[in-house]
Structures are given as structure tokens and as C-alpha cells.
């Protein structure tokens, strides 16, 4: 197993270290829960010891009292400035799930430039589901809703709804149309993951969208030594995220390019 896989597994385990929760169906609610983990990991996963940054961001805009999410935004900026989308590549459990499925021996599809444009969809989703819809609901009927968690998030279904429903009849009885819709979405995303590399991260994930804004500025990440670069573009050819440039907004700093670079011009580290 390479270093990145080890860290991916390790962070998945660390985020979900409350293993007894999976048997009891009980959500850990200790003080650590007020810390957001950097990756996408549902707060309501029985194993989760921390909070999901996206969930926390939305909870500040849901219900009948709005709060400005100083803490969560501040944390996201710190994570972003330090690591950018390195977090997507190295410390996101849902990214790991999609990567594992991509290892299945199915035909693999590279996105056409037209389809590549749909990577902009995640910015639309971020603005619409993280900000506009929660606020629209708040101003329309006084109750803000966590729209991304409620209508889209497949990680919530996979990590929280499914295990909790498996253990608790009371949760099972409460499942309705929203669950069916998101389960369908999860199945589509997981199935797509077997032939498209990380489709959720590329098209839908607001967290990836937020971190992508910091990708070029981040302290750590991928860098190119232009003195050594011969412009062969082998890096881009082998990039699983199909970046247009090494380290651009789509780059999850996985380091695949560094491995294939014939002149060793690319490296991961402090930029």
C-alpha cells in the first residue's frame, strides 16, 4: 500500500474511531464532536468522533435562529490555506470509497472536454445548496434547512442512514421519500465511481469546491520545478482528475504526476 492509501485509511479510521457506535447504533456526542474534521464525514455516522465541516456550515443556517459560521469558515480557511485539495486526495473518507470502487476491473472513461465543464457544477451546488436554499427557506417560512445534507449528501446516507437504519427500528420507521431519493443518488454515484474517477469530488462536492479556491495558494501541495520541466505533458496525460495544469483547481494533490514525470520536476511538499 502506498503512503497516500495509508493516510486515507488512517484518516477514515481516525474520523470514525468510535467503533462501538456501529454496534450500539449510538452517535458519539463527546466534546471532540465540536471539532470539524477536514474531510467529508457525516456527523451522524455512528463512528464519527468529529463533525462534518459541510454539515456544521449548514447547521448555522438551519432552524429558526441563524448564526454566522465564524468557527467553521475559519477552520475551512485554515485547512484550505494549509492544504487546499490535498485534503480531498489524502484525508477524505468518501474520496477513498470512490477510489476503491474505481479499482474494480470495469471499463474506465475519461471525460470529454465538454463533460469536464460540468466540474463547475460543484460551485453552483455549493452556492445553491449551502447558502441560497437554506436562506431562502429561512426567509420564506422562518425555518432554514440544511439543503445539501437534506437533498444531496451521499456520504450521510452511506455513513449514517444505512448503518443507523440497520441497527435501529425507530430510524427505519422514519425513513421516507428523501431517503429513497438520496439512496438512489448514492447508488448512482457509487456505480459511476467504478468507471469515472471520483465523480462526486469532481462534479458535486461543495467541500472540494471550497478547498479548490485555495489550491494554488496552499502552503502544502504539488509543485513543478520549471527548470527541470521539459513540457512533455506526461503528467497531465496520467492525471486521474484530468487537470488542465498541475495543481489547478481540480488537482487533489494525489501525486500520480510526480511518479510519471521523466525529469522528476514534480514534487509534493511545501510549495
Amino acid at each position: 500500500m502506498d503512503k497516500r492509501s495509508v493516510i486515507q485509511w488512517l484518516s477514515t479510521l481516525l474520523y470514525n474511531a468510535n467503533l462501538p457506535g456501529f454496534i450500539q447504533g449510538r452517535i458519539y456526542r463527546g466534546p471532540l464532536k465540536s471539532v470539524c474534521v477536514p474531510g467529508l464525514n457525516c456527523y451522524s455516522c455512528p463512528g464519527a468522533v468529529g463533525a462534518c465541516p459541510l454539515g456544521s456550515l449548514q447547521s448555522s443556517l438551519s432552524g429558526v435562529i441563524l448564526h454566522f459560521p465564524f468557527y467553521v469558515l475559519g477552520l475551512l480557511i485554515v485547512f484550505g490555506v494549509l492544504f487546499g485539495r490535498l485534503i480531498c486526495g489524502w484525508a477524505c473518507p468518501f474520496g477513498l470509497v470512490q477510489e476503491l470502487l474505481y479499482k474494480l476491473p470495469t471499463p474506465k472513461i475519461k471525460l470529454s472536454p465538454a463533460l469536464q465543464r460540468f466540474t463547475l457544477l460543484k460551485y453552483v451546488i455549493t452556492v445553491l445548496f449551502m447558502v441560497v436554499l437554506p436562506l431562502a427557506y429561512y426567509y420564506a417560512d422562518g425555518i432554514g434547512i440544511p439543503a445539501f445534507c437534506k437533498f444531496i449528501c451521499p456520504a450521510g446516507i452511506l455513513e449514517a442512514a444505512l448503518p443507523l437504519a440497520a441497527i435501529k427500528p425507530s430510524i427505519r420507521n422514519a425513513l421516507g421519500a428523501l431517503f429513497s431519493w438520496k439512496l438512489l443518488l448514492l447508488i448512482i454515484i457509487l456505480a459511476t465511481s467504478t468507471f469515472i474517477y471520483r465523480p462526486f469530488c469532481r462534479f458535486l462536492c461543495p467541500l472540494g469546491a471550497i478547498y479548490s479556491l485555495f489550491n494554488r495558494l496552499s502552503v502544502y501541495g504539488i509543485k513543478v520545478d520549471l527548470d527541470k520541466c521539459i513540457g512533455c505533458d506526461k503528467c497531465l496525460h496520467y492525471c486521474p482528475m484530468q487537470c488542465y495544469n498541475v495543481g489547478d483547481r481540480e488537482c487533489i494533490n494525489c501525486g500520480a504526476c510526480a511518479e510519471v514525470c521523466p525529469t522528476k520536476a514534480i514534487s509534493l511538499g511545501k510549495k
Binding site: K3, I7, L10, S11, L14, A17, G30, P31, L32, V35, V37, V49, G50, L82, F83, L86, W90, A91, Y220, G255, A258, S267, L268, G269, K270
Partner: peptide, 28 residues
Amino acid sequence: MKKILTSFVLALSLVTISGFDTSLSTNT
């Protein structure tokens, strides 16, 4: 590569350790 790994693991474990520490004391 090494630096990035070490700092990442360090950051991750710091968060975890600090959290677990408080969680332990609250548990008591």
C-alpha cells in the same frame, strides 16, 4: 514528500489527541 506527510500526520494526531484528552476527562 516526507515533510508533508509528517506535518499532516502531526496535525491530524494533534487534533485527535487534544480531542480525546478532553473527551476522556469529560467521560470521568
